[in-house]
Amino acid sequence: MRILIAGVGYYNLRDLSLGPLMLQQLQKLDWPAHVEFDDFSFGPIAVMQRMEDRPGFFDRVVFLAGVGRGGREPGSIYCYRWKSACPSNEEVQQCVTEGVTGVVSLDNLLVIGEYFKVWPAEIVVIEVEPSSEEWGDDYSEPVQAAVPVLPGLVRQAALGPLHRFHDSPYVATLLD
């Protein structure tokens, strides 16, 4: 069972930097040898091509990102098992267009990876609703408050049984 933990986000945009910044923190913890880490903030097409280099290598990928979807409490952690699903070809094309022209987006990444069949069957997404998308290298207070929960949750998502994760986003705390 080979597992990849990937952060996605923009650097220097406070809460939207959560993915890559948390990744650095997570890498300092003790993990089994079969867990790898990668910063997937460099564009979905490049990520897809990187995954293509190791076809079928990973059995599970855990994504971590600050994702603003609106209507959610800032700092709340949402977790879900991402089920394979591709939108229409027009929408995939738009994702590719954004991807090759510099937009870093978890949703685009998931769609592009799915379309080009680079993802393993097991994908878990952990999102934190941002409060601040301002320039800066620190988190807002609500997101900072969520940070201590994340290492445990990511560990459960990476190493725990997958059936404990729902298919649609739900507010997550540490599972018991």
């Binding site: 923009y10 945009l13 939207l16 954004e98 937009v103 987006s105 409060s131 601040s132 998308e133 301002e134 320039w135 807002s140």
Partner: peptide
């Protein structure tokens, strides 16, 4: 783009 008067940068 920084949105003046808000705590937000438009990123797409």
């Amino acid at each position: 783009i920084h949105v003046d008067g808000s705590d937000r940068v438009v990123s797409r």
